[in-house]
């Protein structure tokens, strides 16, 4: 993967000037490359990873992982049903997997009722869906490579040869 993308994937706040400082590339070239990636949809968007467990607010949310078994539609395969499912805004991720079930969803809602309503009213009755298993997420330890803990202090002695 292009070094520019690697850097932005790690830290979306890096400016073209910042990127130029850590690479051999010129600012203009970096700007052009980013524009190209944005236009081509390689860069989908810039987001911030937030550890919501550390927020003391009441805007809490609940997440569930849902295993879905589906009956693939003739001439449409899995994609047709997958799209019908992932278009729901409650679904924050949707993967097609090998193994004992077909789709794995991450569903997000403000409380357990939102999730159960989604499953009972939208997902389970959908034509082509033959079964679901819902797992409520209890604690996040690590997400997309980020360990969601309080920042650890540097344990090194401040100055050594």
């Amino acid at each position: 993967m292009d070094e520019i993308l690697e850097l932005l994937e790690q830290n979306a706040k890096m400016t073209p000037e910042d990127i130029a400082k850590v690479t051999d590339k010129k600012v203009d070239r970096i700007k052009k490359a980013i524009k190209k990636y944005e236009e081509a949809g390689v860069i989908v968007r810039y987001k911030t990873v937030i550890n919501k467990d550390l927020l003391k607010s009441d805007s809490e949310e609940i997440r569930a992982l849902i295993e879905v078994n589906v009956v693939p539609q003739k001439n449409k395969g899995f994609d047709y049903l997958a799209e019908k499912i992932y278009r729901f805004p409650e679904v924050v991720s949707c993967y097609l997997l090998s193994g004992t079930y077909d789709l794995l969803l991450t569903v997000c809602g403000k409380d357990i009722h939102t999730i159960s309503n989604f499953v009972a009213e939208k997902l389970a009755p959908m034509e082509g869906v033959s079964g679901t298993v819902t797992h409520i997420l209890l604690k996040k330890y690590k997400e997309d490579g980020d360990i969601l803990e309080q920042v650890e202090r540097d344990k090194r002695i401040a100055i050594t040869y």
């Binding site: 540097d154 090194r156 002695i157 401040a158 100055i159 050594t160």
Partner: peptide, 9 residues
């Protein structure tokens, strides 16, 4: 901020 450390972070 120490830039005086002789070991990996």
């Amino acid at each position: 901020i120490s830039l005086g450390v002789g070991e990996p972070d």
